[in-house]
Amino acid sequence: MKKLSELQIGEKGILSSVEDDFLEQQLLEMGVTPGQVIELERKSPFKDPISILVSNLLLSVRLSDADKIIINIENE
């Protein structure tokens, strides 16, 4: 278990849960549902926001939001 904000660039994980109802709903609507693979693609020059790749979708997420997104890391 890791927070999305703790992922390294290029690291992948599986979405476990989101600890904020509003944020969760927003991610769900964009098709980011539990069980999907999330990859941290890039950090912006000031390390915040970050961009994540979920299925074919590239999303920009603020670090404060990424703190609330819990990721399951495989093969740890």
């Binding site: 590239l58 999303l59 920009s60």
Partner: peptide, 9 residues
């Protein structure tokens, strides 16, 4: 509430 998760097309 703000919308901060944004698509990067």
């Amino acid at each position: 509430k703000g919308y901060y998760v944004m698509e990067m097309p």
